[in-house]
């Protein structure tokens, strides 16, 4: 029984550390935020195991839910801004090409 519980605890903790490592090492912002949300939900599961249902509820709702929504919005804004910058650069290049074509004519 105690061995079974030990195995259960180890699986919980190894998954928790694995999720945290993945969130920290992921270079793409949106992936990192989604892994962070998964980490927060898993953490609330671990806290439920440790007999802290209040804190588990709060972590799932505030830490993973609202914190994750805030970070996702920020990641999406920065991705959109990067896209816009790339588009602008492409447009400028196209314009320049048009001008050079006209010059050639």
């Amino acid at each position: 029984m105690s061995l079974l519980l030990f195995v259960f605890d180890s699986i919980l903790l190894l998954t928790l550390l694995g999720l945290a490592t993945a969130a920290v090492l992921s270079p793409e912002p949106r992936n990192a935020v989604m892994l962070f949300i998964a980490f927060g939900l898993w953490l609330s599961l671990v806290w439920a195991r440790l007999g802290a249902p209040d804190v588990a509820l709060a972590e799932a709702a505030i830490g993973a839910g609202i914190g994750g929504a805030l970070m996702l919005a920020a990641a999406r804004r920065s991705a959109r801004r990067d896209n816009r910058r790339d588009n602008r650069r492409d447009n400028r290049r196209d314009n320049r090409r048009d001008v050079s074509c006209q010059d050639a004519q």
């Binding site: 249902p53 209040d54 509820l57 709060a58 709702a61 505030i62 839910g65 609202i66 929504a69």
Partner: peptide, 16 residues
């Protein structure tokens, strides 16, 4: 288990 923080978080996520 429950209370002001959890309830406030639910209201906040309704706003989100």
């Amino acid at each position: 288990p429950g209370g002001a923080f959890q309830a406030g978080a639910l209201l906040g996520s309704a706003g989100v």
